[in-house]
Amino acid sequence: MSNSKAIAGAAFAAPAFALMLALLIGPLVVLLALSVTDYRLGALAVNLVGLGHYAALFSDEVFQRALRNTFLYVGFVLPGAVFGGLGIALLVHARIRTRSFYEVIYFLPVTSTLVAMATVWQFMLHPSLGPVSAIFSAFGLAGVDLLNDPDLALGTLAMIGLWQQVGFNMVLFLAGLSAIPRDLYEAAALDGAGGGADRFLRVTWPLLGPTTMFVTITSTIAAFKVFDTVAVLTKGGPLGSTETLLYVLYLEGFQYFRTGYAAAMTIVLLAFLIILSVIQARVIDRKVHYA
């Protein structure tokens, strides 16, 4: 390649490279740098603490609890969001005239602001006024306070998270379902695989592979980043039972102004997300076939 061509190529790539540097790589480097200092927002002096913050994370009970809670939350929301989305998509896809109606209904939670909807949920779940409690007491479970019971609060938040994510996944699965050629179902019908289970196992599920991979990874990331419901509904309580990574991170960074420590947490959160995504992509990719 001639020199002038190389220069021209670099010039063309430069704007994108500069933007990536400024918006993605730069902040990450700053974050990494902050995580090894004792920087506090507004402080005049900064000291290097090395990997001290990371070591502290291992013995920080609040962080450990937040980590456990977050994994519990993801473990509950992820299967529900993926298989719930798939199940609803399968049902909605089979509708002909009412399909768009159901699409809108299930997609509504996605378009609404979770902070605003959280107040609705607060009313719905209110132990004496809320309709959910009314249903509970009809079954003899009077006085259950879903958001203030340490054993139930995280599960309740997970249900709300699920409620919000499932519609989005449904739309993705619907797109995947529409892309499956009709010929394949007809070939399956002739081959004797026309029954529900065989249709699903021979055609629908394998051909939804790429969609499932995408949905799983995005749902994991979304679940990992749970924040608004915690901040609005429980503030991490009761007894820290709903403290999640992002919420603790927010407290450290923006309530206690321990920016350096919060930066270290962010790095850990990022590392988790990257590792999980890579594992999922690797595992699923081996079984996915892009036609």
């Binding site: 070939a187 055609v203 076939h289």
Partner: peptide, 12 residues
């Protein structure tokens, strides 16, 4: 048995 224009083979 039928042979389709698109062949309709199971891609996976």
């Amino acid at each position: 048995a039928m042979v389709f224009q698109s062949y309709a083979l199971y891609p996976h």
